[in-house]
Computed example of a mutant assay.
Amino acid sequence: MKTSALIIRTSYLIILLLSLFICFTSYAQENSVSINFDDLNLEWGGCPDFMPDGCNISVLQGDPSEANTDVLFKVPANSSIPMHWHTSAERMILLSGEMQVTYEGEEPTILKTGSYAYGPARKPHTAKCGDSGPCVLFIAFNEPVDANSGKPDE
């Protein structure tokens, strides 16, 4: 009986230690990220075709095809962003410029540099970058990154 209890306790201890080892090595492999939004080494890519000319996106952290990705979204001054929606909610901070954002059924909101905004998933919205220079927006997505023109099919 004592040998059986010892084997069970030893097995539990081994499982616990392996679990802790896996947890700690997973955390140890992930690196921190620190980037300035005007860093010349940022890699910028294009936006979906329905977005205005000069629109660019840079991935700061994560994989856009997976959950929890942070991006920079940049449009030139005086650009209008047509009605669109995202599968994911978006958390945003305007880093430069001035932007008017209008969510369907709500009054327009003016974002100034440093403003935070939250956009619910699947809620159609438009935006316009003002004339004070390009608008650069930090956006954190919970779900994979997408931008769909028009309104979602309900």
Rank of each mutant, 00 (worst) to 15 (best):
M1L: 11
K2R: 14
T3P: 02
A5N: 04
L6R: 09
I8K: 09
I8H: 06
R9N: 14
S11D: 13
L16R: 04
L17Y: 10
L20K: 01
L20Y: 00
F21A: 15
C23V: 12
F24W: 00
F24D: 02
S26Q: 10
S26L: 08
S26W: 01
Y27R: 10
Q29M: 08
S32C: 06
V33C: 09
V33K: 15
S34I: 13
I35D: 11
F37C: 01
D39M: 02
L40V: 12
L40E: 14
N41I: 00
N41P: 03
N41M: 05
N41C: 04
L42G: 05
L42T: 05
G45R: 12
P48N: 03
P48K: 06
D49W: 06
M51H: 07
G54Y: 11
C55V: 04
C55P: 02
C55N: 09
N56M: 11
I57G: 10
S58F: 01
S58T: 13
V59M: 07
Q61H: 15
E66L: 13
N68R: 08
T69Q: 01
T69V: 14
D70W: 04
V71R: 09
F73S: 05
F73W: 11
K74S: 12
K74G: 04
K74L: 05
V75F: 10
P76F: 03
N78M: 10
N78H: 06
N78F: 01
S80L: 08
I81E: 05
I81A: 01
P82F: 05
M83P: 04
M83A: 10
H84W: 07
H86M: 01
T87Y: 13
T87N: 15
T87V: 03
A89D: 06
R91Y: 14
L94P: 00
G97C: 00
Q100C: 08
Q100E: 12
Q100V: 13
V101C: 01
V101G: 02
V101R: 07
T102F: 06
Y103P: 00
Y103M: 15
E104H: 06
E104C: 00
T109Q: 14
T109H: 07
K112N: 10
G114N: 08
G114L: 02
Y116F: 15
Y116Q: 03
A117D: 14
A117F: 14
Y118S: 11
Y118V: 12
G119F: 04
R122A: 09
K123G: 04
K123V: 09
A127H: 06
A127K: 00
K128G: 00
K128C: 00
G130P: 00
D131H: 03
P134K: 03
P134R: 03
C135T: 06
V136D: 05
V136I: 14
F138K: 12
F141Y: 14
F141K: 03
N142M: 13
E143A: 15
P144M: 09
V145E: 06
V145S: 05
V145K: 04
V145A: 10
N148R: 09
N148T: 15
G150F: 04
G150P: 09
P152T: 03
D153E: 11
E154S: 02
E154V: 00
